[in-house]
Design a protein around this nucleic acid. Structure first.
Lengths: 351, 351
DNA sequence: TTGTACGCGTTATCAG
DNA sequence: CTGATAACGCGTACAA
C-alpha cells in the first residue's frame, strides 16, 4: 500500500474544481463560496491530503521555517550541548512555535565557519533567523542581506535583538551580597570576548565602586572547570573572601565545589550568587541563589517577532534580570532587591 | 543592491553550457569534462550562486533535512528544555551533522498531539526522522509509512533503534553500592510509562534478588522535585537506608538535597549513584558517581545511520552504560565494575 | 560528453 | 466567485 501521496491535483479533481480553487481553500484565501469550500475540505480530509512544503516554498518564496544559528563558544561544536543556555533557547523557541506549523532548523558553527554558514543561511527563504553568539560584524552583514533576523543578546546596533539587563543584574547581585554583610566579595567573570559577560563585568565594577569594595576578580570560561579554578585561586590569594559573584551557573557549581574542598561551608562561611538560574541552579547543593536570566522568554520573543511580521532595524526588547533567592548566599533580605534600584538606597519595590 | 539571487540558469548562461550540465557540476555528477567543470565552478564562485534548497527538494524528491521528533514527558512542552537528556540528543545530532549540508528540524509534541504531528512529518520528504520518547505504537505506524526512522531508546520491534544497556547499567550500579558495603540500598525509579525507566527497574530488581537485598523503592518523575520527595519519603519509612540508586541525574540532585536536609552526609552516611551522567552529575556537590548513558553518541549514531543510507527494519545499535566514579558514592572500587559481568563474581575486566 | 524537454506540486496573475 | 496558465528553480531520462 505504498500509493503515492495525494497532490492538490487529486483534490481538485475529486472536488470538481480547478487547482487554483483548491489552493485558495487550502490557504484560506478570499473569494470561495462556502459550498465549494466545504466540499474541497471534505475531499482533503478523505484523501488525507497534506501540502508539499517544498512546492509551497518554491512557488510562494516563503518557508515555514525559522533558522536557529548558533556560534559555539569553543572549537568543539559538541559543547553546544553542555551549556544549559543553548537548550533553554531551543526550549523557548519550541514553545513559541508550538501549535503553529512553523518549525525550527538548527545550524551550529564554530567561529571559523560562522561566516560561511551565515552566507548559506542568508540565501534560504525562511521566516527569519535567530542569531546566538554571532559576532557583531557578522550579524550586521547578515542583517543587511536578510532583515528578518533577531539576535539573542547584544550585538551590532542595527540588528534587532532581545537583551537582558545584565548590568543591572550584576549590580543587584553584588548589592545583595553586600546587604548580607559580606565585604570580601570576589567575582568570577566570563570570557572577555563574550558580550553578556562584558555587561556583567561592568555591573560588578559599578557596584564595587559604589559600595567602596575592593576589586577581587578572575576570569572563567563559562564552564564548571573554569569556575573551580578561579575560585580556588582567588581564595588562595585572598583568604578573607566571604562571597562570590559568579557570571554563570555552570561556573558557580565549580566554585561551590572549590569552596567545599577548601574546608569552607556554603553559605555559612562563603556566600555564592550566580547568574542564569538555569535548571542547574535549583539542582545544586545547596540550591543556588541566582540572578534569573529569562532565556526561554527571550528566545520565545525572538521567534514570535519573526513569526508575527517584519522586524524593524534597531528593534529591541529588554528583559529584566531578577534575584531568585535559594540557599547558597544566605537568608532572604528583609526587602527584596530590585535590579533597577540604586544600591545605596533602601526602600520598597519600585513598581 | 537587492538584486535577485542567481539561479542555475544564470550559471549556465555565463558558463556557456546548458542547465543540465550546470546541474551535473553542482551535484558532482559523472560525465563532465574537467575543462567544463572548472569553468562552471568558476562562474558559480563569481556569482556567489547557492542552489535553492526548496527547488532541489521538489525536483529530486529528497531533502537535506533530518526530522527530530520529540514527545514531551509532560503536558508542558517547555519542560523539554529542562531535562539535559534532550539537549544532549540535540548536541549529538548537531555534531553528527557538522560539516555536512544536512540540517536538523525540530518538532515537539505532547502525547495528545503526537499522532497528528507524526502524520505530518511522515508526509515530508526528508532524509529521515529521529524519534525520541515516541510511544511504540505510534513509532510502529510511523515506521510503516516511512522506513527511514530511528528511535532513540527501546520501542516497537521492527522500528530501528539505538539503545543503551539500561538493565546491565542498573545492575552494575546496585552491585557497586553493594561492593562498597552498603546493604540498605533504596531505589528511586523513573515514571512507570517510560521504557528506559522500566529497564533500569528490571536491572535493579535483578541485582537485589541476586544479592539478597530488600526492595526499597519509590517512583519519581525524572525531575528534581520527584527525586527529593521520593528520597525524603524513603528515609522516613526506612531510616537505616545507607544508599540510593537513582534512575536519573536530575532526580539524584533532589535526593542529595533531601539527604543533606535530613542531616545525613553524602557519601559518608549515604551513598548515591545516579544514571545518565549528564553535565549535572559533574556539577553536583559532591560530584556524582553516575552510570554514563552515552546519549550524544547514541543520537549521533542515529543521525549518521539516516545520512549514510537506508536503515533496515529491526536495526539495532546497543551502547554500553559505564560507571563513572566521582564522590557521591564513596571511593573507587579496587576492581573497576563492568556492566556485563555477573555481580557475584569478582575478577578483572572482561575485555 | 553535452543538450533537449519534461516534470516536481504549488502559488499567483489574469481573464471570464 | 472560478478556471486557465504561467512561473518557481532544479533534476533527470533520453536523445544527440
Amino acid at each position: 500500500m505504498q500509493q503515492r501521496k495525494p497532490t492538490i491535483h487529486d483534490v481538485a479533481r475529486e472536488a470538481f474544481v480547478s487547482r487554483a480553487t483548491a489552493s485558495r481553500v487550502i490557504n484560506n484565501g478570499r473569494g470561495v463560496s462556502e459550498q465549494v469550500r466545504s466540499r474541497v475540505n471534505q475531499v482533503i480530509a478523505d484523501l488525507g491530503y497534506i501540502p508539499n512544503p517544498a512546492a509551497q516554498t518554491l512557488a510562494s518564496g516563503r518557508a515555514n521555517v525559522i533558522e536557529l544559528v548558533v556560534v559555539a563558544y569553543d572549537a568543539d561544536v559538541a559543547r553546544f550541548g553542555v551549556h544549559p543556555y543553548f537548550s533553554r533557547i531551543v526550549a523557548g523557541m519550541v514553545s513559541a512555535l508550538y501549535g503553529t506549523d512553523t518549525r525550527m532548523r538548527v545550524h551550529v558553527a564554530c567561529e571559523t565557519d560562522a561566516a560561511e554558514l551565515l552566507e548559506r543561511v542568508a540565501q534560504t527563504s525562511s521566516l527569519g533567523a535567530v542569531l546566538v553568539n554571532v559576532p557583531a560584524l557578522l550579524a550586521a552583514q547578515f542583517h543587511e542581506r536578510r532583515p528578518r533576523a533577531v539576535s539573542i543578546g547584544a550585538t551590532a546596533p542595527r540588528v534587532p535583538a532581545v537583551e537582558a539587563e545584565n548590568v543591572q543584574g550584576a549590580r543587584a547581585a553584588v548589592g545583595y551580597l553586600h546587604s548580607l554583610g559580606r565585604r570580601g566579595i570576589a567575582a568570577i567573570h566570563g570570557p572577555a570576548s563574550n558580550t553578556c559577560a562584558a555587561s556583567r563585568r561592568i555591573g560588578h565594577l559599578d557596584a564595587i565602586h559604589e559600595l567602596g569594595l575592593p576589586d577581587l576578580a578572575a576570569d572563567g570560561d563559562f564552564h564548571r572547570e573554569g569556575g573551580y579554578r578561579a575560585a580556588a585561586q582567588l581564595m588562595r590569594l585572598h583568604p578573607h573572601i566571604d562571597a562570590f559573584f559568579v557570571a554563570c551557573d555552570l561556573m558557580a557549581t565549580g566554585a561551590i565545589q572549590a569552596i567545599t574542598a577548601s574546608g569552607r561551608r556554603v553559605p555559612e562561611d562563603v556566600s555564592v550568587v550566580s547568574f542564569d538560574d538555569s535548571v542547574i541552579a535549583a539542582c545544586s547543593n545547596p540550591p543556588m541563589t541566582s540572578m534569573r536570566l529569562p532565556v526561554e522568554e527571550m528566545a520565545a520573543a525572538a521567534a514570535r517577532a519573526l513569526i508575527d511580521g517584519s522586524v524593524p532595524p534597531c528593534w529591541r526588547r529588554i528583559f529584566p534580570v531578577e534575584l531568585v533567592v535559594r540557599e547558597s548566599a544566605g537568608p532572604a533580605p528583609a526587602v527584596p532587591w530590585q535590579a533597577r534600584r540604586p544600591l545605596s538606597r533602601a526602600g520598597g519595590p519600585s513598581r
